[in-house]
């Protein structure tokens, strides 16, 4: 049953990624080197016979884990990715957090404008956060990157509207229907390479990866994918409980996303 479900999710994601590549002139994907965006790249390789046919963007504020930088370099080489590293600055007192939030959105806006990307593949999932649950698979953003989440087209019976009537760009979310266990199942099935920080060392591991100073490790002895999946079956702790920005009230996340944050 689980494998059947995974097959459906995989086929749907591949369809969405191919649809994006076909319908838009200039597509790019965001890669944070976390489990979700790495799974998205693996699905993309499956969709395009082992290639990722668009640029892969990492918005780098310089405070990622050293292991994450190593993983980036290793996988970019192995999968022959067209990697674009965009350095975001840390400016004081912008909205959200000093390391991400508006600062990352500003860097993304610059790169979108410079290269004229009209579609951006982002690996968010509905089960991650209440505000992400409101997303659509094809989600328009206006020129200022704003997301009008109160006025979205319904995607009934998986009928997606991949036409871009906006004056901005479209966010494409091929993993929206996956949940955390689906992602780990897929990683196990496809042997997707994963950032080593997800696995336990000295009784701790990272369940959701962000920057070094806004992500905290959880107590865990899960040293491989099977053990992580067993752990997830019984846990009552939210996936992003270690992410500092999510500890804020939901409207902060809503505000960040409305402003163009991932």
């Amino acid at each position: 049953m689980m494998m059947q479900n995974l097959k459906v999710l995989e086929e749907r994601s591949i369809y969405v990624i191919r649809e994006a590549k076909t319908n838009f002139k200039n597509v790019a994907a965001l890669w944070s080197m976390g489990k979700d965006s790495t799974t998205m790249l693996s699905l993309t390789r499956k969709a395009f016979h082992g290639k990722v046919p668009f640029p892969v963007i990492h918005i780098d504020n310089g405070i990622d884990f050293p292991e994450t930088y190593e993983f980036r370099e290793k996988l970019a080489k192995k999968w022959n990715l067209n990697l674009m590293v965009i350095e975001s600055e840390i400016k004081p007192e912008m909205s959200g957090y000093a390391c991400c939030g508006e600062n990352k959105s500003v860097a993304l806006k610059k790169i979108m404008k410079k290269y004229g990307f009209d579609a951006l593949i982002v690996s968010i999932r509905r089960d991650e956060h209440g505000i992400r649950a409101k997303e659509r698979v094809f989600s328009p953003r206006n020129k200022e990157f704003r997301w009008d989440y109160k006025n979205q087209v319904a995607e009934v019976w998986d009928n997606y509207s991949s036409r871009d009537d906006s004056d901005g760009h479209i966010r494409v979310h091929p993993l929206l229907d996956f949940n955390e266990i689906d992602i780990w199942n897929y990683i196990k099935k496809e042997k997707v390479p994963i950032n080593p920080l997800y696995f336990s060392r000295n009784g701790y591991r990272y369940r959701s990866l962000g920057c070094t100073h806004c992500t905290t490790a959880i107590k865990s002895n899960a040293k491989n994918v099977e053990q992580i999946m067993k752990e997830l079956e019984v846990t009552k702790v939210e996936e992003r409980s270690g992410r500092d920005q999510d500890k804020e009230k939901a409207y902060v996340m809503a505000k960040l996303r409305a402003l163009g944050y991932m």
Binding site: G62, I63, P66, E67, C99, R205, T212
Partner: peptide, 25 residues
């Protein structure tokens, strides 16, 4: 520290720690 001077702004600098492993616990 975890930052470097980048003209008028700041940038994170953990990339210089590549090769090290996190000390959990």
């Amino acid at each position: 520290p975890i930052f470097k001077n980048n003209g008028k702004s700041l940038r994170g600098a953990t990339i210089y720690l590549k090769g090290l492993r996190i000390k959990n616990g």
